[in-house]
Design a protein around this nucleic acid. Structure first.
Length: 797
RNA sequence: GCCCGGGUGGCGAAAUCGGCAGACGCAACGGACUUAAAAUCCGUUUUCCAGCAAUGGGAGUGCGGGUUCAAGUCCCGCCCCGGGCACCA
């Protein structure tokens, strides 16, 4: 066969249509005897079109999935749609198009794009979270959590985005603004909300991170640990002088308590209002208002003395009770003891108001200062601490906590930064919360056999701050399942992060109508062997799904403690200006245009070649053309060598075989160890360079064995061209079904080696010796070199 | 402030366990083919000095020290960039 030109526009649609009509090609089965491999890429939100970040994410996952198929694994590689969410409602407001229509048509568009890119998904397992057969299980889980006390309702101050007109979870507030409207400050609003008790699992969520080492990136584990914010400390009661009422404070430094010079209450602390003198009520009101209005970082510390005193239970000393705007009501106990000599914030506050500053911790190799000019916040030795004087901080903390417990005025305790997950949303396009409010019975859960509570289709979206569902009488008005009298449905919907917290479990049994999934099937597939997605989900989605897994385990559905054994977070795709692609900056690259111009293979190859997959990469069209040229060269090279049938015994043939086996080793190693696909592709380029130059030297000595292995090595990265070449070569079959080439170390070994000769770390010369040369012979060879004798001092290989 | 990343040619990057720094690609320049262009192919390309040349010599992986026969890689002390958390007591 003579050389042919590469035409992606005919090759790619052809194979896409073949693959589309091959029902079993990407199918995984529980009955399969081969080892399982479950790889999931984070499912997209159907916003309209794929962006390059998706292409990169899915190219990484697909390359891996194809490699694992060829390695003989039973690969489960599914895809779905995170289909509920606000943009659908915004689109409805803008264009009048119902959220469902908008979403469904976006899904159709994006599914077409995924197919054009050649991703190997088993579409029979496709899920879409906005369909009742999916979200009914959100409702089912909600009811199970309600039964276990893990879902509860409370009146609370919540984050409210004025643009979204809905409540936001703490995780959705970024720099005091909505995560979707980054310049609009979130305000605080008091509302009845449903919460999931994620704090009940706080300990396990922290401790479990250890088991995810090294499967999950250090960065993600650190961020989660940070977010949960576990801190070990002590709770201590200071008693109010007169009434003897306890004011409980939380501290991580009970060893400094002999230096406590006041107790400070949060403005919202339950005792604050009662203790505040009449003339200071106005002051308190102003502080409270400032707090809900201003950015916390900009508020200066301020407060006032209540006129009351409390007693330090360790020293018996009487200290004033203050109210301070910097004390957080919802952390710890909402009250602190101020130890200005050993805490920077307390130092600032007490200096401002002339409250005494008493050092009680000295540096291990220093003395206790008379006067503190700044806060000494490190550990040291406790002084002026009665029976605890002379103890190092750590030991003092332990002994003093124990003392509090024995004397019944406190205890060692653990506090978390993590808050319960607020899941109510005053929006339409989400999972209805399966609860009915009855005047007689109160909160009544919808019985299981009445699930799903179906989201009605024709609803007027107003964008105003009330759930649109309230204006749908046939939805809202319902008979109480318990007493039968007229009642109202809950009109809020669930946070969309609920949808994505367990979706990957549904993949393994997507059509189950009795349960979310069959536990036996989930047991076969879980935990996921590999989960791949953006670092942006390091906290939100990944923390929620870890929580959900633990809840499902405690319900008895699964046995695994964590959803994914391995997590990979890929870097972002940046525009040519080095910043994130965004419509407003006009640096967005459309995958469709790239696929049309260069083909899916080129597009995939570039996203893998431009940088290691965990790092950010910049889009660069010249560099894309480089990948396109490479595929052209591959195509021409293989097609012109396709009929060659030689043993390859010449020097050139052996050299080709050696380079081939080195490349197999290199590419396989990249897959198995570190996923630096950029170097895998570079190795394939090197191999092609070597083969083309050998081809000129010894025409016709490129063997079948070499070209067929070449095409197999390329297949996970560029599936269309590889399949086409495979067909031209063998006449039939799917390259995905071929075995991955195995490297033969004997063939890969060089028989001569150029050894650099270094003297004092500088390369002075090189000697070429046969492989296996002894050390003595090597030295002899080196010494025979003129330059070496001249420069000789010490030497090493 | 605390916790993670990262810093290597004109650019993206490579060097996986301390052993030839810059693989592979882009861009640029020179050449072949062509009436011409595109495509393709060949060559040069870290930098400085010497030489007509083959070549030889020096410097070089953010900065300053250290360990080692040998450091982009390990240790100590800094600087800069990106990300996360942050009155969390």
């Amino acid at each position: 066969m003579s050389e042919q030109q590469y035409d992606h526009l005919s090759i790619e649609p052809k194979w896409q249509s073949v693959w589309d009509s091959s029902p079993d090609l990407y199918k995984a089965s529980v009955e399969d005897s081969r080892p399982k491999y479950f790889v999931v890429e984070m499912l997209p939100y159907p916003s309209g079109k794929l962006h390059m970040g998706h292409v990169r994410n899915y190219s990484i996952g697909d390359t891996l999935a194809r490699y694992m198929w060829m390695r003989g694994y039973n690969v489960l590689h599914p895809m779905g749609w995170d289909a509920f969410g606000l943009p659908a409602e915004n689109a409805a407001l803008k264009s009048g198009r119902p959220p469902r229509d908008w979403t469904v048509s976006n899904i159709a568009t994006m599914k077409g794009q995924l197919k054009r890119l050649g991703f190997s998904y088993d579409w029979d397992r496709e899920i879409s979270t906005c369909e009742p057969d999916y979200y009914r299980w959100n409702q089912w889980f909600f009811l199970r959590m309600y039964e276990k006390g893990l879902a509860y309702r409370k009146n609370s101050r919540v984050n409210w985005c004025t643009i979204c007109a809905t409540v936001l979870a703490n995780e959705q507030v970024v720099n005091g603004c909505c995560w979707r409207h980054e310049t609009t400050p979130v305000i605080q609003k008091e509302i009845e909300q449903w919460f999931f008790r994620i704090t009940q699992y706080a300990d396990e969520l922290v401790d479990g991170l250890k088991d995810l080492d090294p499967g999950w990136p250090e960065r993600v584990r650190a961020m989660q640990e940070n977010w949960i914010g576990r801190s070990d400390g002590t709770e201590v009661d200071f008693r109010l002088e007169g009434t003897n009422e306890p004011i409980r404070v939380f501290t991580t430094r009970v060893d400094t308590i002999f230096g406590a010079s006041c107790v400070i209450l949060a403005p919202e602390h339950p005792l604050t209002a009662g203790l505040t003198a009449a003339e200071q009520q106005a002051e308190l009101k102003r502080i409270l208002e400032d707090q809900s209005r201003k950015d916390p970082a900009e508020i200066e510390k301020e407060g006032f003395f209540t006129g009351h005193y409390a007693v330090n239970p360790y020293s018996g000393e009487k200290v004033p009770v203050w109210v301070g705007n910097f004390v957080l009501a919802n952390y710890g106990t909402g009250a602190i003891m101020a130890v200005p000599a050993h805490d920077e914030r307390d130092f600032e506050f007490c200096s401002k108001y002339g409250i005494p500053i008493v050092p009680v911790i000295r540096p291990v190799d220093g003395v206790l200062p008379e006067v503190a000019t700044e806060a000494f916040t490190e550990y040291g030795i406790a002084e002026k601490a009665g029976q605890f004087s002379g103890l190092p901080s750590a030991e003092a903390r332990e002994k003093m906590s124990h003392f509090a417990e024995q004397n019944d005025f406190g205890k060692a305790t653990i506090t978390y930064r993590l808050r319960d997950w607020g899941v109510s949303r005053q929006r339409y396009w989400g999972t209805p919360i399966p609860i009915i409010h009855c005047e007689k019975c109160g909160v009544v859960p919808v019985p299981d056999d009445q699930l799903p509570v179906v989201l009605p289709d024709s609803v007027n979206i107003t964008g105003e701050g009330r759930s649109p569902l309230e204006s749908v009488p046939e939805f809202i008005n319902v008979a109480c399942p318990r007493c039968g009298s007229a009642a109202r449905r809950e009109s809020d919907t669930m946070d969309t992060f609920v949808d994505s917290s367990w979706y990957f479990y549904r993949y393994c049994d997507p059509k189950n109508e009795q349960r979310p999934f069959d536990p036996a099937v989930a047991k076969h597939w879980f935990p996921m062997d590999q989960y791949i997605g953006g670092i942006t989900h390091a906290i939100l989605h990944l923390l929620y799904s870890r929580y959900w897994t633990k809840v499902m385990r405690d319900i008895g559905l699964i046995e695994n403690n964590e959803p994914a054994a391995n997590l990979f977070t890929q870097g972002m795709v940046l525009g040519t200006d080095g910043t994130a692609m965004s419509k407003s900056k006009g640096n967005v690259v459309d995958p469709d245009l790239m696929v049309q111009k260069y083909g899916a293979d080129t597009c995939r190859l570039f996203t893998l070649f431009a940088a290691p997959p965990d790092r950010d990469m910049e889009w660069n069209e010249s560099s894309v053309e480089g990948q396109f040229r490479f595929l052209n060269r591959v195509y021409r090279f293989i097609t012109r060598n396709i009929n060659v049938e030689r043993e390859g015994t010449s020097q050139g043939g052996r050299q080709a075989l050696r380079k081939l086996h080195q490349t197999i080793g290199k590419v396989t190693g990249d897959f198995d160890n570190r996923w630096h696909f950029n170097t895998s592709i570079a190795a394939l380029m090197e191999l092609l360079n070597e083969l083309t130059s050998l081809e000129e030297k010894i025409p016709g000595d490129i063997t079948q064995q070499v070209i067929s292995a070449y095409v197999k090595l390329l297949a996970p990265f560029a599936p269309f061209i590889s399949q086409e070449l495979w067909e031209l070569m063998s006449g039939s079959g799917q390259i995905l079904r071929q075995d991955w080439p195995v490297t033969d170390p004997a063939l890969a070994a060089e028989d001569e080696l150029e050894v650099p000769v270094q003297i004092n770390g500088k390369v002075r010369s090189r000697v070429v010796v046969p492989i296996g040369t002894s050390r003595e012979d090597l030295e002899k060879a080196a010494l025979a070199e003129e330059k070496i004798r001249v420069a000789l001092e010490g030497k090493q290989v």
